[in-house]
Write a protein that binds this DNA or RNA. Sequence first.
DNA 1: CGCAATTCAATTGCGCACAACTCAATAGCG
DNA 2: CGCTATTGAGTTGTGCGCAATTGAATTGCG
Lengths: 160, 160
Amino acid sequence: MTALPDVPDDTDLLRLDRQICFSLNAASRAFGGVYRVLLKDLGLTYPQYLVMLVLWEHGDLPVKRIGEYLRLDSGTLSPLLKRLEAAGLVRRERSPEDERSVTVSLTGEGAALRERADRVPRRLLAATGLPVEELSALRALLDQVTLALDTAVPGLAADE
Amino acid sequence: MTALPDVPDDTDLLRLDRQICFSLNAASRAFGGVYRVLLKDLGLTYPQYLVMLVLWEHGDLPVKRIGEYLRLDSGTLSPLLKRLEAAGLVRRERSPEDERSVTVSLTGEGAALRERADRVPRRLLAATGLPVEELSALRALLDQVTLALDTAVPGLAADE
DNA sequence: CGCAATTCAATTGCGCACAACTCAATAGCG
DNA sequence: CGCTATTGAGTTGTGCGCAATTGAATTGCG
């Protein structure tokens, strides 16, 4: 009457499901909390730090590209970039060859902040208490499930 | 000059760090997107669904207990519970024996919603494209890192 | 007992995520 | 060429997450 070992009944699924979303939620917020502490004296929030990482690595970018790297839309990025500009870390300028596009570039202050941000990763790594290989395994699993979820979303509304 | 294999230099750390926070962010939002679709016809958001899960499993609870299960404070829960109340899914009543406490209980409608929510976990499981064992492994890793991060936070502000 | 400290929920304020929409600029088709 | 469709950024509105504060109720210590 019961299902096969790897096809649990609905009660098990409810419990597993709850644990996965609980765990993911908790982990996401735990990371956020650590980053918040580590980034506090840089004057950055976690999403702002992600944007700065992208700019430090890739140099000047239009808003569109930043959004592609971080999977964020203009509704999130526009006010965030305005705050970074108000903080003196970036400039925003309309592109001359395409007036629709806005190029985001680092100021001297924004580029200089990279030095101070260098210590963040090592402190975060230490805070996780995990060896590098396990973090890599975690990242790989997360990427795998993200890809699967993204491809699954479209045909999901109806019934699939 | 280079460090030992499992003590990478700062460049590697910067890259790894970025990938970890990118991956976790992306996974969290990918889950959110799938839940948003699956929960749409239930009229629930993802955090509201988590609250309902807790109530379905544990019955009536004071706000404090819900917050402990979900690691959320009253600043998040108060407006969320008001919306659930406005939707007719829960009641909120001051406890007679302790006027500070507010007990949240399911309405008939809220309890009935559980039937329709039963299909969510299996559809989510299918959307991940991962076998149950891998999801369990993912959950275990997430729980481990969450625990480590939580215990690390206190002594982090200064330098640790 | 009486008063200070603590507890619980609610509120305020800020920032992020996302959907829906607006508006200007560009691309591209007939 | 002209007109429509598309693109890129921004705005608005809703909801979540968190810090800080408020205010009432309770606890507990002297």
